[in-house]
């Protein structure tokens, strides 16, 4: 990669930094009591929670840092934090 002029960059490059490696706790989306409200996706500071084909939500573990905000704020208490297995 040759340098840009003036230290500029186009979008998408931060995705090369897989922040999932930071995680010590992992959110498990159980899809049990989930009401598909989508709060978990809205409040994820990593933009790492996405709706799946069934309308439930899952974390992208490539980027999820395991902060636990989704589990804390889930009104249905359907997300469980467990220690990351490395």
């Amino acid at each position: 990669m040759t340098l840009s002029v003036g230290c500029t960059a186009r979008p998408g490059k931060s995705r090369e930094n897989r922040t999932g490696a930071w995680r010590t706790f992992k959110p498990n989306f159980k899809h049990d009591k989930c009401t598909k409200c989508g709060i978990c996706a809205l409040i994820c500071p990593e933009s790492a929670v996405h709706e799946n084909q069934d309308g439930f939500y899952d974390a992208d573990y490539n980027y999820c840092k395991g902060c636990g905000l989704c589990a804390e704020e889930c009104p249905a208490e359907d997300i469980e934090m467990t220690r990351e297995e490395k």
């Binding site: 340098l3 002029v5 003036g6 230290c7 500029t8 979008p11």
Partner: peptide, 24 residues
């Protein structure tokens, strides 16, 4: 040469680590 433009978004004024600063 390049400009701020919503049709072709570019980040201007990023910071450079020691891996890049000298080359800039």
């Amino acid at each position: 040469y390049q400009r701020l433009d919503a049709r072709d978004p570019i980040s201007f004024g990023m910071y450079a680590t020691p891996d890049y600063y000298m080359e800039f």
